[in-house]
Amino acid sequence: MTPLAADVAQRLKRRARWSGFEIAFWIVAFASIWLLPQKHLILTETAILALFALSLDLILGYAGIISLGQAAFFGTAGYFAGLAAKYGLINEPVLALLCSGLVAAALGFVTSFLVLRGSDLTRLMVTLGVSLMLGELANRYSNITGGADGLQGVTVAPILGLFQFDMFGHTGYVYCLIVLFVCFLIARRLVYSPFGLSLRAIKGNALRCGAVGIPVNARLVAIYTLAAGFAGMAGALLTQTTAFCSLDVLSLERSADLLLVLIIGGTGYLYGGLIGAVIYKFMQDWIATLTPQYWQFWIGLLLVVIVLIGRDRMAAWHEAARAALARLFTRAIGWRRGPALGGAGPDRS
């Protein structure tokens, strides 16, 4: 091996190294199980939202597909999980979760062919259209879905037959956090793989991708399907932890809020959705104590301000903040690992 080849191999692998920031993030996340027991209910919602946002990041941040209909997968799987539990089709929650994910992924696979062609606006319309259609269906078949009253009478069995869901949300939080972590690990492997690299390339220049031998459509179908599966698991988690599912899981607002969550955190580096979810949920919690009804106004204002500031500038701030955190962390535990932060930056496009 020539020195250059060794350097190349080295650099290609280095991008994927765990940075101080990442390790700190997950330590804090898992520590919250013991440190913030009274916040477990909101943390559960946060973890679910984070998983949901992670799914959007995979298609928007990596593959560049604008979607305003991610709620379609969230909601479908949410109902599936609810019905499966209600009628005792699949009792064990983990199995039900996986099946819900598969159902959503199947829906994602079928609808992925609709987003292959067309401009951003057509994609927006098609994704939105699909979720609205499902919303209409859920409303129409209210004998099955419970319609506007929501799906009542869902009882969720203990996880693996061992851990019963409790009213303080302790079990639910640990469960959601583990699911989030596993999905995150999968996503992380994926984005640093050759497949993940090809997604970033497609986002950058789909025309050129074809010219270097990448089957663009097949890749988009694959990631859209996987992201739908993740979104579906998030929806199923919501149903399982609340033992309830209502029409708003399919609503436009859910997809729009999701976009906001991801934008707050930044796209294209995986942590955007997670950090965005934390900020969003705790901000919501805080504003709700001040002016509960007009929460939507502040959300809107935030979106407008973010765009006016510019997402690339925000990304730079994020990066600086993360670097500072990571330095703090490495210093705190007295451990140096060199400049490994590179590569995990949000994209600037």
Partner: peptide, 20 residues
């Protein structure tokens, strides 16, 4: 590296690292 790995048929590999 992307173009090379696509040609060598690793493009659908979503588990290993790019430089592996």
């Amino acid at each position: 590296a992307l173009a090379v790995s696509e040609r060598l048929g690793f493009g659908i590999d979503c588990w290993r690292l790019v430089g592996r």
